[in-house]
Design a binder for these strands. Structure first.
Lengths: 127, 127
DNA sequence: GACAATGTGATAATGAGTTATCAGTATAAG
DNA sequence: CTTATACTGATAACTCATTATCACATTGTC
């Protein structure tokens, strides 16, 4: 059991802000780079510690994509999926969901949840 | 560039057979365990080497699932997706696909491909 | 403002998965 | 059958993401 984060520090504020402002799943490195504009000396260990704390307290969730290290996004969003840009590598949140996949599942299988990942070019990478 | 596999060995035959017979994406460890029934002394290094060779020559493909090390399945199958049993951890191939996800993508994004992963209980784990 | 305790940054350590190394073995051409 | 060489198994080494460590800094309570 991890001890709750108790103090409000510049570093933690910056990390939360970055996650709110960019509003897409971010890797620890992406968080570091973005948050360093706000807190120049920020270290990667603090990013990992803070992300872990945010997940622990329920205000962030890990987003796992195939073949990728986990990214993190703020919790509390409604059901959604992700788009992974094959050029810049950024991951974006998508709205909407086809919903029912039971027709794909063989007899005797019981589906509990699903993940969809779309791949392609984001707006900035469609030139 | 990897040199092509040149010889037909007991180990390679066993690995190919296992992949054909089980007919689902297998982790290197799963391949090892299954193939050891055919070639008792089989080593994990040979499994990794052979899987790499099969991918290199185009007869197998890596299957990446969120948060998981790559599994491998034989190549040449038609478009399909996967089911990951949350109890036993096995991955199965599914038929069918909703097909069109363009309605989920924002203006200016271009979709190239998609992945769907269903999670739940396989037949053996639905008791 | 002082101080106890939590937080930070640099970096060493860790862990899981995978690859490299190398002495000995098996394959297949002749 | 002989022989060159590709292949194998054991295990050391490596990679990359993540976590632990520790001296120093910051927070917030009194």
């Amino acid at each position: 059991m991890l001890k709750a984060m108790e103090r409000s520090t510049r570093q933690r504020k910056a990390i939360r802000e970055v996650m709110t402002e960019l509003n897409r799943p971010l890797s620890p490195t992406e968080v570091l780079e973005a948050a360093r504009y706000k807190v120049p000396g920020l270290g990667i260990a603090t990013v990992y510690r803070t992300l872990k704390g945010l997940v622990e307290e329920g205000s962030a969730v890990a987003v796992e994509l195939p073949g990728e290290a986990p990214r993190y996004e703020l919790a509390g969003k409604k059901h959604h999926h992700h788009f992974h840009c094959t050029r810049c590598g950024k991951v974006f949140e998508l709205e909407g969901c086809p919903g029912d996949f039971s027709f794909m599942v063989p007899q005797g299988f019981k589906t509990e949840k699903h993940e969809i990942v779309l791949y392609g070019r984001c707006t900035d990478c469609c030139y």
